[in-house]
Structures are given as C-alpha cells and as structure tokens.
C-alpha cells in the first residue's frame, strides 16, 4: 500500500510507541535476518509445505497421463502408452466441447464479476452515506457455503418454486415459469449469474483495498492539470491498480477453471452437454468411469492451459518484468 508522505512519519512514530520492545528480544532472528540466508529462510517453510503436497500428486499425475490405468481393469496393469491418450483427446468430441464450454465459462465467470466488483469498488471509494453498511453486506454472498448457495440458487431459479420466475411473470417479462437449467440456451447463462453473485465480492474486496491505497493527492494534482475524470481513471487508477487486478484475475481464473462445483449442484453438466466443462469431465472420467489414465491426460492438458495462460497474462500485464 502506498502511503501518503504526510502520514508516514506520524504513523511510524505511533507504531514505535505501540510495539513492545520484547519483539526485538528474538535477537538471533534479528541477527540471522541480517545475513544473506534470510531470504531463503523466509521461503523455506512455504516451500517445504507446498513441496510435501505438490510433487507426488503432480508427478504421479503426469506419469498416469502416459499410462493406461483403468481401476476397473486391474488385470491389465498400467502399461506405458506414451502420448496415446493425448492423441485420443484430439479425436474426442466431448473434449473439444468441454474445452469450448470451459473457455466460455472461464472468461465470463471471471470478467463479469471483475467488472461488477470494479464498479462497486469505485462507487464504495466515494464515501456516500450508507457506504459502510454496503461494504459489509456485499461480502455476504461469498460467505455462504457453496452447498447452501448452490441449492438456494437452484430454488430461486426453480421452474416451479422459483421466486425469480414468479417475479418475472408478475412483471410481465415472462409468460410462464422458465426452466432455466433445463434449456441449452439458458443453462450456462444461469450458472454465470450464480457465478457472478458468488464472485463479485472477491473482486470488490481486493480492488477496494487496492483503490484505497492510491493517494488522493495524485488525483488532485491531475485535476489541477486539467485531466478529466476519464483520463484520471486511465492514467492513475488503472496503472496503480494493475498489480491487484492481475493477482485477482489470475487467482480467480485458476479457481474457476478447476472447480466443477456449480455444475455438480445445478446442472450435472447438462442439459445434454451444455454445461459440460473440462473440470467436470475430468471428475467424471476418474470417479464414474474410473479411467484414471485418461483423466490424468485431461488434467495435464488443463494444467498446461492454465500455466500457459498465467505466463502470457503475467507477461502482458508486465508483472514479472523486474
């Protein structure tokens, strides 16, 4: 967080008087922190923890993707098949369809909540009366456990008991209750609506934290120079907010692409294959068909797509430039 220079000194001296001296009694930590090992020591716990968990699953996953391994056919063992399962993917109509759905779902389930979150964060920054209340309230959708949120949305949009249908009919926007999740053309949009509701608080929270750290003086200086609101937004807000935007979008994209939760509760990938995304496909292949080799190939492809996307995105956004 950037800090306005005027606040800096007072903040610091205030902190000095508040932090007890015993914190420095960990003298040896302090001494080590002056050595060149410090950076590594700080990274060590995180790396240890993550490597315990990451190496075995990822390596076994990649290994599996190169082997045939169907749990229902123990007699066949796990023969090495090279890239065969990846070649099979190219021929797999369901794979391409799921890839397309994943792209559709991934893009809109990130962009929609981002835009709404951004607008709300911008609005919240201009403190109006009642903004404090709204700040807390808009976080609520995110607090709801996904099993409750998913089923409550299924109820809200239900084709018999759904209050949204009832309101739309009463307003004359619909002739009769619409089966949102049962129709190809509305199943994914309905899921995206739920995703928007679940996702925008995350962006609003992060972007607001980022916005608040931009010093007001910069805006005032720009206003004196005659910059209008739009150009202030473009030349001050966007560049200074960019690091937070990048982090938020990266994290959200990864979460969205990897999580079949909404599909499992709301549509089961249907109707037909209208909401059949890769994460759902991989899950079904592993735990309904028990073809772990193929599921691994799907997973490795997803991993590759995500790594590729993340690297490109970070490069474009210029975050890894230094």
């Amino acid at each position: 967080m950037a800090v306005a220079p005027a606040d800096r000194r007072s903040g610091l001296s205030l902190l000095r008087s508040h932090w007890p001296a015993w914190l420095d009694l960990f003298g040896w930590v302090g001494r080590i922190s002056e050595t060149r090992y410090w950076a590594w020591l700080m990274l060590l716990p995180g790396f240890l923890l993550i490597s315990v968990v990451i190496f075995y699953p990822v390596i076994s996953g990649i290994w599996l993707s190169l082997h045939e391994y169907n749990l229902l056919r123990p007699a066949r063992g796990q023969p090495f098949v090279g890239l065969q399962q990846f070649i099979d993917l190219l021929d797999d109509e369901k794979f391409w369809l799921s890839l397309r759905n994943t792209a559709y779902f991934g893009v809109f389930n990130v962009v929609n909540p981002f835009l709404l979150g951004l607008v709300i964060a911008l609005a919240l920054k201009r403190a109006v009366r009642g903004a404090g209340l709204v700040r807390t309230l808009i976080l609520m959708p995110w607090f709801m456990p996904s099993v409750v949120a998913g089923h409550m949305w299924a109820l809200l949009l239900d084709s018999r008991l759904g209050v949204i249908n009832d309101i739309l009919v009463k307003l004359g926007l619909l002739e009769s209750y619409w089966p949102w999740f049962a129709r190809t053309e509305t199943a994914m949009p309905a899921i995206l609506l739920v995703g928007l509701w679940r996702g925008f608080p995350f962006f609003a929270l992060l972007l607001l934290a980022g916005l608040q750290s931009i010093s007001q003086e910069m805006y005032e200086a720009a206003a004196v120079d005659g910059a209008n609101a739009l150009s202030r937004f473009r030349h001050i807000t966007v560049p200074l907010l960019l690091p937070v935007i990048v982090v938020a979008i990266t994290l959200r994209t990864i979460a969205v692409v990897n999580s079949p939760d909404l599909m499992i509760i709301l549509t089961g990938g249907g109707p037909g294959l209208a909401t059949h995304v890769l994460s759902f496909y991989a899950f079904q292949t592993a735990y309904a068909t028990f073809d772990f080799g193929y599921a691994a190939a799907l997973s490795v492809v997803m991993l590759g797509i995500l790594i590729f996307f993340t690297l490109i995105y970070l490069r474009v956004a210029g975050v890894d430039r230094d």
Partner: peptide
C-alpha cells in the same frame, strides 16, 4: 463400468433427444 456408461453416455444423449438436438 455400468454406472459410468449410464451417467456419462446414456444420460447426456437422452437429454439431447429430449431437447431435440
């Protein structure tokens, strides 16, 4: 393999017929 076939092949294709696809 029956449950997997029913869930991942029978159900979606049945739905596609219902939808007229």
């Amino acid at each position: 393999g029956g449950p997997g076939w029913e869930r991942n092949v029978v159900l979606p294709n049945f739905q596609r017929v219902l939808l007229g696809e």
